[in-house]
Amino acid sequence: MAGVAAEPGFLMTTLEKGVNWARTQSMWPASFGLACCAIEMMGTGAAHNDLARFGMEVFRASPRQADLMIVAGRVSQKMAPVLRQVYDQMAEPKWVLSMGACASSGGMFNNYALVQGVDQVVPVDMYVPGCPPGPQSLIHGILSLQQLIMDGEIRNSTGVV
């Protein structure tokens, strides 16, 4: 938040920062668990690592209620259209986080069955490396994404509005 004025009772900020702050602090992820990475994603949300500390524990089953799609795992050729459809169902503003080597680049499976990187299907805002990325990596990725939103302009998935 921007500075607090000398007189008590005033809180000043730019509209941009206010909106971005509101957006970052309650980002609801759509659960898009696909493979091994999904287990780590669930582990991040569970007791030990507790994603609730960052206002993100509400994994939504319905894409229409979610702001962030965490693509956790390998995306097969058969799954890609489904992934795109789920993405299209999400309401603006929306972000995509690609979790793990497979989602980011196909990982170790460079073969006929896998899409070599989910960014061929949907625009990706943040890549988290690892196979699987540990909960700490995922949390770091999410916090970086929050920082990115905070620092940037008000935007939706297609660009600045």
Partner: peptide, 26 residues
Amino acid sequence: IGYLHTGMEKTAETLTYAQGGTNVTR
């Protein structure tokens, strides 16, 4: 089914026996 078909059995044919463990563990 098939939404997670990763082609691991095919990938296994291109990996050596020493590398295969990395593939099958997934």
